[in-house]
């Protein structure tokens, strides 16, 4: 299992907290406990991803940063399709594994500067600072494909397949929005992905031509041909 030790059992790894013997702790030890508690309060116990509270702080910061830096960011909302059915059919342990699978795929596909969060239930989010529209679609598609290609193996040999719907909005300096509006726009795209049949990505900005060919490239490409062909 992907479960990251510590988050689910966070309080148990700190016997001082449980036994109430905090008075006997050194300053450093107290600081470590405070850090640990902060950490626990900002992470999701099951997946180890950051939780909604952290996500909202991070999104607020990113919206501000976009206007200062001028760099476009992307917000993706990722929803596990038919999560309730998986839970009802196979039990909540398999449901948990499904969530861990999505969390694993997200972790594998984000850069250190990105934020992957579990926003409760079967909803996840990723904030991608400085993300060009064409790259954003690529990452979203990759996440969708990898979840689809990572079924859960049951003990009886059967596989449970999962899919995700992904909605995304670009946070661009040209439209000043507060973070609730950004979240709302991403939510609308997620709704679109769901209503168009699930297992798909819907982003709000059409990706521009992904790979413009510069004059430099063309001249390097063609110059030698012109010379050679007359030989």
């Amino acid at each position: 299992m992907l479960r990251q030790a510590g988050y689910a059992d966070g309080l148990q790894v700190m016997p001082e907290v449980q036994s109430g013997s905090l008075q006997s702790c050194s300053c450093e030890a107290l600081q470590a406990i405070i850090d640990r508690l902060c950490d626990i309060s900002l992470h999701d116990a099951l997946t180890g991803l950051v939780n909604t509270r952290y996500f909202k702080l991070a999104l607020g910061r990113e919206v501000d940063r976009v206007f200062r830096s001028g760099e476009i960011a992307l917000l993706l909302l990722i929803d596990l399709d038919s999560f309730k059915e998986i839970n009802d059919t196979y039990g909540h342990l398999v449901g948990d594994q499904a969530l861990l699978t999505v969390a694993g795929v997200l972790t594998k596909n984000v850069r250190p500067m990105d934020t992957a969060a579990r926003c409760g239930g079967d909803e996840f989010a990723v904030i991608l600072p400085n993300c060009r529209p064409d790259t954003g679609r690529l990452i979203a598609e990759r996440i969708r494909m990898q979840v689809e290609q990572t079924p859960i193996a049951l003990t009886d040999g059967r596989n449970v397949r999962m899919t995700t719907s992904i909605g995304g909005t670009h946070i661009s300096p040209s439209r000043k929005l507060v973070f609730e509006e950004v979240l709302d726009q991403a939510d609308q795209q997620l709704y679109r992905a769901k209503s168009e049949g699930r297992n798909r990505v819907s982003l709000d900005v059409q990706a521009p031509v992904a790979a413009p060919v510069s004059f430099d490239e063309k001249s390097q490409l063609l110059d030698p041909f012109g010379r050679d062909s007359d030989e």
Partner: peptide
Amino acid sequence: EPASIADAYATIKILALM
């Protein structure tokens, strides 16, 4: 032909990047 080479290159670039 140059135009075909240039278009093949653009196709290669897009397939590589996307």
